[in-house]
Design a protein around this nucleic acid. Structure first.
Lengths: 150, 150
DNA sequence: TATATTATTGCATATTTATACACTGTTTTC
DNA sequence: GAAAACAGTGTATAAATATGCAATAATATA
């Protein structure tokens, strides 16, 4: 059974180099004496749960979920930057104004961030309400959000 | 800018349903009055950092990295189950025998698991040595590994 | 050992995805 | 306000990926 040896090599390779396609991987492996076709690579990738992640250059490359952990918050931050108009508070409600249509996604973004003392969010079309558990935390949360967009 | 409204809907959809392809997504959105082509979906998916994950049925579907967190250890466990022959210890070294060629990948698997008191691993072709920091921890670690494969 | 079962893979190809290019609408700059 | 720069999208298609099927290898079973 040479499958695992090959898969191990695959994990190694995607960490070392920018592997952009399955053909890439197949031919690199071929160069190392491991003869395999794209079809098998496709199956290996499924088994190994490898994913396509965007490299620094904006292109797709193969990577692991672990590795792309960081990019989760990247996504959220990017969405924030592009859509938030203002952040304000009324008592324990943080009111976020967004460009039209972006409130929902900003809401889910905030949910994902799991900010302490955030009880929940509700979003309309261009407004998000963030319920804060304690009045004292409101400023922290606002600063937290501002930090994201700068 | 209706892009974010659409992307928000996309996030919603992939959580609710098993979306298998980008065409799938495009036509579902179309059914909801959001008119968009596969090409744009492809770009949205890149922006949202969505990935293909294997659904329960073994097929691919779209999902988020967050959602597929769990499947990381799945991968490792699966590899273990399929390749470990025996687990034993000599003093503070846990010795794992695997099917030929699988030691490397089992080694990386163990590394990823970040088991307490594991100092490091080294793998040959069909054998992995796991260095344990304290003699007292050896049994725990062995049980830990056995638990994985059962 | 012979037979049956299961796992792994290649080949060929259908399916799916990414992208170059062109167009449109929006925002910025002077 | 006109011109320039930019963002978003569709069309068409090239590029990349997944998979049915058949062959072979590995493993289990009698």
């Amino acid at each position: 059974m040479k499958k695992y040896a090959r898969q191990s090599k695959i994990l190694e390779l995607i960490n070392e180099r920018e592997i952009e396609t399955q053909e890439d991987l197949a031919s690199t492996l071929k160069g190392m004496g491991i003869n395999v076709t794209q079809a098998t690579i496709s199956r290996d990738i499924k088994e190994l749960r490898l994913i396509k992640v965007t490299s620094n250059t904006g292109k797709y490359k193969y990577g692991t979920i672990e590795e792309s952990q960081n990019s989760i918050s990247d996504r959220l931050v990017r969405i924030f930057k592009n859509s938030i108009i203002s952040i304000d508070a009324s008592m324990n409600i943080v009111v976020i104004r967004t460009i039209p249509g972006a409130a929902q996604i900003c809401g889910s973004a905030i949910d994902s961030l799991q900010i302490p003392d955030v009880g929940g969010t509700i979003a309309g079309d261009d407004t998000v309400f963030v319920a804060v558990r304690k009045l004292e935390s409101v400023d922290d949360i606002i600063n937290n959000l501002y930090a994201l967009i700068n």
